[in-house]
Design a protein around this nucleic acid. Structure first.
Lengths: 188, 188
DNA sequence: TATCGTAGTCAACATCTGTTGGCATACAGC
DNA sequence: GCTGTATGCCAACAGATGTTGACTACGATA
């Protein structure tokens, strides 16, 4: 597995991608214009098209990320829930790509599709082993996603005062037991 | 308090508003165009401007709603949480205005501001009386909002398969204890 | 140094957007 | 019926947007 030869334009490509993430995170898909992204990256709008083909494909490239969820096999449910919630909040704070995808998924169908894929490929498999009955695993993972996304939406997108005011540790302390409950509790 | 004289154009106004709610709910603020709304209502785009002044004010009119939250004074917390969650889910299913506001709030600042106002004026006051310590009331209400909005987002906006597959009764059974916990449990 | 592919610039395009003003029509009050 | 106002339609404008193609400058390679 050899990486492709480095190109002279790699710095430009990276600058475009970084500016795109900024704009998509701040404005969502439709309000983030190619011209604004190009201006932020201090390059010509035509470069964006040359290197990424279209706005749609630029977004696809900008919204690519790995949640890097830890392996939780063998970890007790209570501890696993704490780790999960903490990891998600941390990822959201350090990488605005997550906010970009969340914002865009509200109005752009392909962004929503990507988000569903992230759920299916990265989140659900980590939650599933904790389900007492495997047939319930999808619903349980869905509830966990609703919890995480609800927190992320109110905190990073809507910026609801009382939620942004909660410290990260306290937020983890509130959400972890909920997530644990969804993962393992008897079906109500 | 006398209602203003009915105008001949009231049916047109109503048709515009209904079409606007449809479009805003389906597409979000920026992708819902005045031309599309007018076409849905089968009228001329200029009529929208005449009656609502601007797209911004049209949205403001279309996104106006009352959650009609019930009075929960004296109700036990467990029961109150059930009622609240059920009421929210029901409102969301029957009135797409809520989805319109949720979608728009992701990318439009004035929609977000309105959503924060709905939280402060309609949601927080209902939750506050259940808080054991009144200083914690805002945070508790914020957590409830995160729970509700997370469920609404995954179910009605993102349409995440496993979440849409959960029946309404079962969803209430899962969420209500969580909401009750946020409202009343000792701070973790 | 000459050559060729890469990187970058510039101007323009077709289209769509919110918005405006002018003009016809229909209704209500005299 | 006549008049004035409310209602509706049409065409157009000005600006923004994604996208394209032609042209120039650079940098490695021969």
């Amino acid at each position: 597995m050899t990486s492709p030869a480095p190109r002279r334009s790699d710095t430009t490509r990276a600058a475009i991608l970084e500016a795109a993430r900024d704009r998509f995170a701040a404005d969502g898909y439709e309000r983030a214009t190619i011209r604004a992204i190009a201006a932020d990256a201090d390059i010509d709008p035509a470069m964006v098209m040359r290197y990424y083909g279209s706005k749609e494909r630029l977004f696809a490239a900008a919204a690519e990320f790995d949640l890097r969820l830890p392996d939780l096999v063998g970890v007790a449910a209570a501890q696993a829930a704490r780790i999960l919630v903490g990891h998600f909040l941390q990822r959201w704070e350090e990488d605005e790509t997550l906010t970009a995808l969340l914002r865009a998924a509200s109005t752009n169908e392909s962004a929503a599709e990507r988000m569903r894929a992230v759920f299916a490929q990265q989140v659900a498999p980590v939650i599933a082993p904790f389900a007492p009955v495997s047939a319930q695993a999808p619903a349980r993972a869905g509830l966990v996603a609703a919890t995480i996304l609800g927190a992320a939406f109110t905190r990073f997108v809507l910026r609801l005062g009382p939620v942004t005011a909660i410290g990260q540790d306290e937020l983890i302390a509130w959400l972890a037991p909920t997530v644990q409950h969804y993962m393992t509790a008897k079906r109500p």
